[in-house]
């Protein structure tokens, strides 16, 4: 059983984006390495295009399933505005993984509110100060190139995996366990597209 403190991963997305599969893959890998794990999800209205949020915490022993403001070691956002929304939940020097896709929320569509401009520029300016690392990819485009546009979150999961202490083979095994055979190859490709996008430091 590994020792040490609890690692917190916050995953934010939009209903219907498939945040659930990404958390499944990570959970499989984390458990295989003998950690305690707690996942908390808010769903119910998620199918109707609302924000969805998954809290994942792992370590030798986890008490609270919740990640609060300033506590996430990693924020994985499936959409730019969701990255901005959950940015205050990142701990100082934490890692932000973001899909640069833009999905307009209804208040923006209705013209009641504006989609914040320059989110990526604002976050880039924080790197080295508040944010430890910012990994931004166009996950939708990358997943589409792998033949499965629905695998954008799997691409993102691959990007996140590069910063986590688990080997690539564990993730591929998790994909085999979680994804139906007929979608497996595209999902593996999508994961590796994310995994190899940034140089490992």
């Amino acid at each position: 059983m590994p020792n040490g403190p609890v690692t917190s991963i916050l995953m934010g997305g939009v209903g219907g984006q498939g945040v659930i599969l990404a958390s499944k893959i990570l959970a499989h890998v984390i458990l295989e390495h003998g950690y305690d794990l707690k996942i908390s999800e808010i769903h119910g209205m998620a199918q109707r295009g609302g924000s969805v949020l998954t809290h994942m915490r792992f370590g030798s022993e986890v008490n609270s399933p919740l990640i609060e403001a300033g506590q996430a070691d990693y924020v994985m956002a499936s959409e730019k505005l969701e990255a901005w929304r959950w940015l205050p939940f990142l701990r100082p020097q934490g890692t932000m993984v973001v899909n640069t896709q833009e999905i307009k929320p209804v208040p923006v569509i209705l013209g009641v509110q504006k989609y914040p401009a320059n989110i990526m520029e604002a976050m880039t300016a924080l790197v080295g100060r508040q944010i430890g690392a910012l990994h931004a990819v166009n996950a939708l485009e990358m997943a589409t190139n792998c033949g499965q546009p629905k695998a954008a979150n799997v691409v993102l999961c691959g990007v996140l995996a590069l910063s986590l202490p688990f080997p690539l083979e564990s993730y591929l095994a998790a994909l085999e366990a979680a994804v139906p055979q007929r979608f497996l190859e595209q999902n593996k490709k999508a994961f590796q597209a994310g995994y190899y996008y940034f140089p490992k430091n």
Binding site: V14, G15, M45, A46, Q47, R48, G49, G50, S51, E68, A69, G70, Q71, L81, E82, W84, R85, L87, P88, F89, L90, R91, P92, G94, P105, V106, P107, V108, Q113, K114, Y115, P116, A122, L126, Q130
Partner: peptide, 25 residues
């Protein structure tokens, strides 16, 4: 004292982040 506070981002609170309320599909 809380365990942690929100990450301090200059100018973050200047403009409210648009909510994403559930909508009819």
């Amino acid at each position: 004292q809380p365990l942690t506070g929100a990450l301090e981002v200059p100018g973050y609170c200047d403009e409210p982040v648009p909510m994403r309320p559930p909508v009819l599909c």
